[in-house]
Design a protein around this nucleic acid. Structure first.
Ligand SMILES: [Zn+2]
Ligand SMILES: [Zn+2]
Length: 157
DNA sequence: TAGAACGTCAGT
DNA sequence: ACTGACGTTCTA
């Protein structure tokens, strides 16, 4: 509801929903239409269909929910970092300029947490070393920073 | 390795 | 259905 239109009132702070489930890289059947990415299953299904071995369910316009699971849940912006609090896009950065095909948020508004944090063991983002001077603990607790800030525990550093 | 393009998710 | 934006893949 009330989104916080062009109100001069600073109090309202686009609070974002905080799902306590930081990351559930496992079972998350959230996909709207179960577009589960199971290459194997998909492949097999296709093969069978094309081979005429069977003609997939005739479920009234419903796609079958594959049990295969997976599909990493998308992370959401923290909502408290500087970029996150920016209210409008610059309109001049590369992302703003090719929003139509780039599908990316304005560079000035890209959440700091989303820029960093991407489990090193997960994807490419491996700058050779995760922070030259940052004990693992820091990184581990880094995530709590935002939450704490929201909770009013801005007693850090 | 950064940036562009694309696929897809997720909120309205 | 539309639209914004994250994640992955492709490309220079
Ligand atoms: Zn911009
Ligand atoms: Zn943020």
């Amino acid at each position: 509801m009330h989104k916080l239109k062009g109100g001069p009132g600073p109090p309202v702070q686009d609070i974002y929903e905080f799902s306590l489930d930081e990351e559930d890289p496992k079972v998350f059947l959230g996909a709207r239409s179960a577009r589960v990415v199971s290459p194997a299953a998909d492949y097999i299904r296709s093969e069978h269909e094309q081979a005429g071995l069977f003609s997939l369910p005739h479920m009234e316009g419903k796609e079958l929910m594959e049990p295969v699971v997976a599909q990493k849940k998308k992370r959401k912006r923290c909502g408290v970092c500087e970029p996150c609090m920016r209210k409008e896009n610059c309109g001049t950065c590369a992302n703003c300029l090719n929003r139509k095909i780039g599908h990316q948020i304005c560079k000035l508004r890209k959440c700091d947490e989303l820029k960093r944090r991407k489990n090193p063991w997960e994807g490419h983002p491996s700058p050779s070393s995760i922070s030259p001077s940052s004990p693992a603990h820091f990184i581990e607790h880094e995530g709590d920073r935002c939450r704490n800030l929201l909770l009013g525990v801005s007693r850090m550093q």
